[in-house]
Amino acid sequence: MIDKLRLELFVIGHSPRSKTAVDNLRRILDSTMPGEFDLKIIDVLEQPQAAEDSNIMATPTLIKRAPAPVSRLLGDLSATDTVLRGLGIDSTVPNKDDDDNK
């Protein structure tokens, strides 16, 4: 990959669901490519225009801006396999014994 992984996570304030999404994302990223990404967390309540510009309907929403193609992941990111697929990360890398199927 030439492009660094560039992510935007849209959340609503400090809701429990937002916190879960941030925690899940950090856990997945830390276990796969620590330091190799750029993550921006955007609070829709503080920056509605940013949400407007990106057509954000549901929260939490994670957008992978780079590398191409752009993809969008809805939800609290508890489905680890789906997140890895959406981010284009080789699914053999993470530890499979995680609790993402609970």
Partner: peptide, 9 residues
Amino acid sequence: EERLEAGAY
């Protein structure tokens, strides 16, 4: 855009 659902929203 590719669009996936990965949890509660």
